[in-house]
Design a protein around this nucleic acid. Structure first.
Lengths: 245, 245, 245, 245
DNA sequence: CATGAATGAGGCTTCATTCAT
DNA sequence: CATGAATGAAGCCTCATTCAT
């Protein structure tokens, strides 16, 4: 996850409502053609099949939320059938939970890759904010899954045993960084690491999550490289001013 | 719109299925009609009927999002029938759009009630942030509607002609306030009012929107008066440090 | 009811599905405008109101059939409200029956206006066929009502007392005409007047009733003046050859 | 497709709600599964399921038209559920279109079975008219579907790609037949084959399509073998006189 | 006479899920 | 493992009709 100097365009937002082709066509066609068409062939590789389903499901749930997502749409985006989804994941809700877990897991993994201890506190904090801003912008699916989960009041996250274990490092890294800064005399004392984390998250998250309504209301385009760079710089600056001694 | 010194407990998150309110007392008029069965009581007051539907719909859409909401649930929370929803609003999506428009309209109206020009810039800005934080926390339905609309990529907000007119004042007030501060020498120059607004919004919005996942992951309760007060103070401080000369 | 030499274009087929404007607009508008708009004013003329309703209903039933017709659409095409339809006609079905009766009555009246006895048999028969062809083409609403009624297997016509009385003249006129021709030696004997009437009706009716499928299948346009004139001439010729001695 | 000398009684007009056929005898296969509840018996034979739906839909649409038809009624006349109709046909309108296409296809197939080239022109023409008369009387469902489609102004036929290809033979056969007759000197020259086809169709179609109103108005029963034979003879005669040299 | 508001019943359609092979 | 066929429950929406004023 390299940290680029310029904000490159994000993943293209998935098209709104991909019309699922009616069954009629194929059924009617078969009636006349009288032979089974070339199906994508079975995988026979459970790992891969599951991964494929998860990828498709991630996209669909991120695009439409839990209630808006369609099992059919997920199946159609896969080389397997709807039956496999139930075979491997049991239900729509369990699939959603797995998608959510995977998204969080990947995020934490990424965070762990940041080596903030290598740099002086101020540079490390700048890098952290910068990275978070970029990461959120590049991973809009993740952001949207978190939005969805909050619409659901955290119902499924609460059910997940897995997640509640791999999240400590994130806050620990920030705390360590902050305390190092205080010790060095570059950061002022008395701040709460969790509060700091909340601020960084809020600023970076909102930039993705609320982009549509914000842009519409203020009739602007916040997704241009220039706008993103300006916003990112502003956020980094704000956080640094906030903690600086 | 008094600004309290302490953060009072927020509106209780609406119960999933708000219990239908017990029959209103004004049923005394019924006394003339002997032995009428327990029918829902015909309002014949369109204004009220529409308002009642809108209120129920606001709750339901805020609670579940557009796709999760159920027209039946909305009707059940009303003294009218499902049929009337279609009589007045035409479709689920049009009802949702109206709910969204009303929510934005109320929010803007509230903002207009703030008289920031009466105070010195720094106090006015503090008041603005403070107010925004409080207002968002007190109006979680509004926040959730905006979240839902962003999940829908602003599809319905984009359709609304009404909304795109009453939102200029918000940013104008901030700009005026900021420029006054610069002129007074208390704010540093070179900042963008819209960027400032984005920061305030992000910090206050996230505090409501992401509370569930945030609390779950960090195993804390951010909704206690103490936690809210601390967070609010931190945000006010951060914004002030950001703009101070 | 002049008999033209050339086939003029028929009444324009009513547009397929006139979208009834949703109520929302007006209801929402009222909420802001706060005063009743200028309504078309009440007629206070029952005769005229009924006639207006019947006219609108004739169009709607002819355009869509009994089941396809919408009471709302009829009301909207009138200066009165839906309530008046029920006030004057009791139900959709009774309204339909009345429309049907009126259509038949007008048709018979028209037929009675033909003075076939004034001319020699062959010319009179030619005129009759010619007239029927024209009349059917010019009164497509009537044709479509008869089609609809046949789809309903004559259910409503069977209920109508009124109709079963004014229809004898039609066949009587043909019979008289035919017998005059036989007496004159220009028509061959042994034919049945009702059978003759059936043939004339069939040829002229089909030209209107089946125009859409016929034109589509044979990729032609049977509604041009040229095509109509040719078809009319062919039918007249066929009938005359059929009866000529 | 034998050509009978006498007009046999037609198919009984389908009962409004065709009673669901008593469970088929082949339920013997059930013997292995002990104590299964009375479920509709899962076919798992798509070909058959589709065919069954189409058959029921043909009846229903022919009986009531597009708007009058009920999806529930169609489902009830089938061993499958309403859900399967949507599984295979997507929507009521698509089902209707398919029914229409199938009806036309069967009709054209039947026509193709007539070997008019084997006989001398006059006999062949007589046979053609005779056959058409019989065929229309025997296939009232087809007639009624065409009536319905004309009430809809050919909206669905226009959408069908399939149909517009298999209908040329019909008119080609007549043209060939007519030209043979002209060459033989038994038919007069100068007629248009399409016009001739229109006349035959009109006379035979009307005999079915308008039977209800016609019989009611003239207080007769045109469906007796005697009446049908007389009418058929009259039509054959009329067409032959029309073309004879 | 006239009107806008209101309604119950029923229509079409969709969805997550399971069964038979 | 995998698939196409099948399904019950429920969702949104419409319609003819009636009520209160």
């Amino acid at each position: 996850m390299p940290l680029r100097d310029d904000t490159s365009p994000p993943q293209p937002p998935a098209p709104m409502r991909p019309a699922r082709p009616t069954r009629v066509a194929s059924a009617a066609a078969r009636a006349t053609l009288r032979e089974e068409p070339a199906r994508p062939a079975r995988t026979n590789d459970p790992e891969r099949t599951m991964a494929e389903i998860l990828a498709a499901a991630t996209q669909e749930f991120a695009a439409k939320g839990l209630d808006g997502a369609r099992i059919d749409a997920i199946a159609d985006a896969t080389r397997t059938s709807k039956r496999m989804i139930y075979y491997y994941f049991g239900s729509k809700e369990k699939l959603y939970r797995t998608v959510l877990e995977e998204a969080y897991r990947r995020m934490r993994e990424t965070e762990a890759g940041l080596h903030l201890a290598d740099q002086p506190p101020e540079a490390a904090l700048a890098r952290l904010v910068d990275f978070t801003f970029e990461h959120h912008w590049q991973n809009q699916d993740y952001i949207r899954l978190v939005m969805t989960e909050n619409i659901l009041r955290g119902e499924y996250l609460a059910q997940s045993r897995i997640i509640q274990k791999l999240n400590v490092p994130a806050i620990a890294a920030i705390r360590e960084l902050y305390e190092r800064g205080v010790a060095d005399g570059v950061f002022r004392a008395g701040l709460d690491a969790l509060d700091l984390h909340a601020s960084i998250s809020a600023l970076c998250f909102f930039n993705v999550s609320n982009q549509h309504t914000f842009d519409l209301i203020f009739k602007r385009d916040g997704s241009t490289p220039r706008a993103l760079a300006a916003r990112r710089a502003s956020i980094v600056d704000m956080i640094l001013r906030h903690v600086r001694a």
